[in-house]
Write a protein that binds this DNA or RNA. Sequence first.
RNA 1: GACCUAUUAGCUCAGCUGGUAGAGCAACUCCCUUUUAAGGAGUGGGCCCAUGGUUCGAAUCCAUGAUGGGUCACCA
Length: 550
Amino acid sequence: MIFDNQYIQERIKKTEKLREEGINPYPNQVKKGIPSKQFLRENEDLLSMDAEVKKDESREYTLTGRIKFVRIMGKAAFAKIEDSEGLVQIYYSRDDLPEGYYNNIVKKLFEVGDIIEAKGFPFVTQTGEITLHCKEINIVSKAISPLPEKFHGLQDPELRYRQRYLDMIMNAEVKETFIMRSRIVSLVRRFFEEKNFLEVETPMMHPIPGGANARPFITHHNALDVERYLRIAPELYLKRLIVGGMEAVFEINRNFRNEGMDHTHNPEFTMIEFYWAYHRYDDLMKITEELFDYLFDHLGLERKLPYGELEIDFSTPFAKVPYIDSLTTIGGVPAEITNDREKIVAYLKEHKIEVDPNLTLGYLQAELFDEFVEGKLINPTYITDFPVDISPLARRSDENPDIAERFELFMAGKEIANGFSELNDPIDQYERFKGQVDAKETTGDDEAMHMDTDYVKALSYGMTPTAGEGIGIDRLVMMLTNQHSIRDVLLFPAMKPEVPRPELQPLCDVENLCKKCGHDVTEELKPAKKGKGMFCIDVNACKERAANKK
RNA sequence: GACCUAUUAGCUCAGCUGGUAGAGCAACUCCCUUUUAAGGAGUGGGCCCAUGGUUCGAAUCCAUGAUGGGUCACCA
């Protein structure tokens, strides 16, 4: 049973006791009191009051919050209660409350973890803390589970993620990160709205997974009796909207990828994707820099932020390095190798990286990039002009058909954004999908894209030249809040299921005799392992008895 | 997926080379009308992650598994 813990039982008894006293432990008609910070601010003047006891009994306040500390000193007590803004101290004593209420109710039945309402007037304690002197205290919600230890709080990361609400109660700074996250999302949304982008919502359940290279989650639609795939990216739907005549759209929402989990990957994660007709990929790089400036200005952040041991300089414009150049200038790969498939395979082998030698040049270059370049990109850097064969949805460069008009933005060694001029040639798109389907077959790449003829059909009606980009919101938040695990920027990160403990089996009957010597004084025996019998506690005496038996 | 590491009271943690479990906070019973992680006196509380193995004896040693964390690999 989930309530069989002794501490919970104690608290349930107190809850019953409240009911017996005619007090509802879960009342419904409670209004939020004055915010804690406002209470402290409005009574700051008491601090400079020229009086022996600094107080103002004419002011009346109601505070509501969760009890975090209680200090009882006989007939008077202090407690700290916490609301969403922070802690505030209250004081209550026997003689200020109705007859018997202090001794029998507040002192006995209210405890750390409970949410209460306190009414009274402000005063300043001897140590100079603005405190509410209570004339009335009421229960708002009784907690029957105890809170973790008050000083160390909740440390165990597993419990912090599984019981995030407890983490939030105990670790105030957690809330700060999520407040930042909310502000960032809000500002991103506002930025694009101010640029006259239209926010749209496209399907989360796709008949064909598309828009990225990733394995999807599969679900089933009963009425239609068809498989549906949770979306891995909204890209292909957003571009259908461009075909339909929308010229600037964006969507901020979840993508789902059925892949491994680690400190930068969660099965569901948040992206913004935006599409901008009559623009090209270099416009995207400009607007992305604008977005960062907008965020930093509105969040009041310094342009140089710490990220663990690193310092990241977010000053715009960001560095720009063409993909192939980056292999040499940043990755240190000799230039004569980077365009030769066999040399790349050999070079990778030298560095103890095994690859499928059937991979195309672009994929092999991607191996080089992932291995030698990505981790070294600390300050925000655009890597531009990607190989076409790893960019199946991007438009070819007019100058070089092997290169796509595509960039990715990296910082702290991690990819944050990916954007390109969109491929709007339906025939070329059809061929590229076919290339992906072939890759699926030849190299067994189960993350390669599927043929989406419906999308090609949409393109066949003509799509304006368009540029589109996706920005990983979770990773962006990590960068701006100096968090190193995606789990720390997700309120409820994905976790493996908790395995319930099997019910304890009753101990089978064991003779109360020592297995060695036959001694039968129960107090002098102790059980070995379950079902394995009893043994003497006094080993020497046992040996003696065993010897005598013979 | 590989390797390393952790799992002991509600929480935070001790527990060495095997001898049968400890502290602080929290809880319970008292004392205490300006405390700040309040203080003082006392009491109760443990499937030592699970299952096997070694052993007279395992929280401790070994194996396997579960879950968490870390490193790497995979992955846009």
